Computed example of a mutant assay.
Amino acid sequence: MTSDLNTGTEAKPPPREAGVRPGRRPGARLSSYLRPARLGMVDYYLSVAVVLSLLPTSRQGLDGASLLTSAAFLLGEVCLVAAAVAFDDATGHRDGSDAVTYGPDAPARALAGKPLPAGTLTETAAIRFAGCALVAGALCWAAALFWAPHRPLWAVLALVATAVVVPQYSWGLRLSHRGFQEVFLAVVGWAFVLPLFGLLSGKAGGLAAVEAFLFGLGPLLFGVYSNTHDAEADRAAGRPTVACLLSPRGNRLFIGALSVVETTVIVTAPLLGLAPWWFPLAFVPLKATRARQFTVGMVRGDILRGRLLGIRAHRLLVVTLVAVNLLVAGSA
């Protein structure tokens, strides 16, 4: 290679790529920018699968407009979540909470998904990425509204509100720093199901409302384990999560209560005529996983293992919801 030859002239240092730390390979730039997006964490994005499986239960077909709307919604969802996470990374870098959680004194998680503490991306670049992702997400959702077969006012307003609120997690209004962290995790999940269902079907059915509620509880029921693990750093950064505000016993009771709420909704739905009689039976594997999650994470104290089981439980929930919807549609 010519760059390895001694030409007798002073070698000039390679130009630094904006936003990427010196010493990084040029090919690493894209991956450094994409890491804040957490594209491997698909749990919110599974909402589209739930919605598409719900359509036959409301006697709605899946035409070209519905597919275009769903695709644009999914892309917008990915972009908005990426913006929120990147803003959160920048905030965690500024207030020092990530240095505590991901520093040498707390090596419980790999730095691969945290480019700012790892030094592979600058704060300015992360904020620039977040801003671009936010604009892209808004444009995608505008396209979804344009292609949508139906535009009920409540669905349009919910979509606009979600696009405004999601980036405010730890930037702008900084909702997670004002005591709304747990509520935020659940509400975002609900908002990724019901508005899209309204755009595709023109209504919000009882079964759709139940499934949106259960879907939103999924990220919350593994997010509270992350909060338990990060309680010390969140407390130092002034982020008042339940794990920070309550005693360890109180936090365990809160997490157990969330699982009880999930069970109550599953059992009550058929009694209210919102789901078939066999609806609770379909969720027996999920509740067994929840019990194991609580035992491992809260009783045995393996918090991160409990979080992992919570992620698996949420994905099992999605599979269960899709299967239930297909069975309901098939028996209609």
Score class of each variant (00 low, 15 high):
210 V>C: 10
254 F>Y: 15
237 A>R: 03
170 S>Q: 12
160 V>K: 10
80 L>K: 05
313 A>T: 07
299 V>S: 02
301 G>H: 09
115 P>I: 15
270 P>E: 07
117 P>L: 01
96 G>R: 08
197 F>D: 15
180 F>E: 07
293 Q>Y: 04
4 D>Y: 04
41 M>V: 10
13 P>H: 11
208 A>Q: 05
99 A>Y: 03
311 I>M: 13
286 L>Q: 06
149 P>H: 12
218 G>K: 00
136 A>E: 07
234 D>W: 01
196 L>F: 13
97 S>K: 02
307 R>N: 09
228 T>L: 14
320 T>I: 08
224 V>P: 08
245 L>Q: 09
148 A>P: 10
9 T>K: 04
325 N>G: 02
137 G>R: 11
315 R>M: 10
117 P>H: 00
322 V>T: 02
296 V>L: 12
131 G>Q: 04
297 G>W: 12
133 A>G: 00
247 S>G: 03
264 T>N: 01
152 P>L: 02
220 L>H: 01
102 Y>A: 06
107 P>N: 02
306 G>Q: 03
40 G>T: 06
277 W>I: 11
164 V>H: 08
166 V>H: 04
319 V>Q: 00
206 G>M: 07
210 V>R: 07
140 C>W: 11
332 A>T: 05
13 P>G: 09
70 S>G: 05
280 P>F: 07
159 L>D: 06
330 G>V: 02
242 V>A: 08
186 A>M: 15
213 F>I: 06
90 A>D: 11
59 R>M: 12
209 A>W: 13
5 L>H: 06
197 F>I: 10
174 R>K: 14
20 V>P: 04
6 N>F: 13
